[in-house]
């Protein structure tokens, strides 16, 4: 139990760092967006982990229950997920426009074309 008490946080950090690595090391723009979304999801996990209360239940009031998990992170993340997909859609539509303008979605090739102008 002592090893596991920060397990969620460590895994969330690991997932965030994998997403971060994809963003900084890969040249394909679609893959970068996938990495960014992974980073986003890991932040959600970190937040929700902080809202957990031992012996608590889903924050919907029922007779006989006194312990509920913290509803505030739930509200923040609930809206963040939907806003996240909307912003991802903007990123993906920019990628489609880049493909139409440059004929490629690889970062290296885009930079080369920019230099040759």
């Amino acid at each position: 139990m002592t090893v596991l008490h920060l397990y969620n946080y460590e895994i969330a950090i690991f997932l965030a760092m994998v997403g971060f690595y994809v963003v900084v090391s890969r040249g394909n723009l679609v893959k970068k967006v996938a990495g960014l979304s992974m980073f986003q999801t890991s932040v959600f996990i970190l937040y929700i982990s902080m809202g957990v209360v031992d012996g608590g239940t889903v924050p919907i009031l029922v007779e006989g229950m006194t312990h509920y998990s913290n509803p505030v992170p739930h509200v923040l993340i609930l809206t963040a997920i939907v806003v996240g997909v909307a912003t991802t859609a903007v990123a993906l539509s920019l990628i489609i426009r880049i493909k139409e303008a440059y004929g490629t979605v690889e970062e290296d090739e885009i930079h080369e074309q920019d230099k040759s102008f």
């Binding site: 939907v82 997909v85 859609a89 539509s93 489609i96 493909k99």
Partner: peptide, 19 residues
């Protein structure tokens, strides 16, 4: 949310593949 999500899908799917 409903209309924006569907508009997003229309915008992406209505685009001709390739070019």
């Amino acid at each position: 949310v409903f209309s924006t999500m569907l508009l997003l899908y229309y915008a992406f799917a209505g685009r001709e593949p390739g070019q």
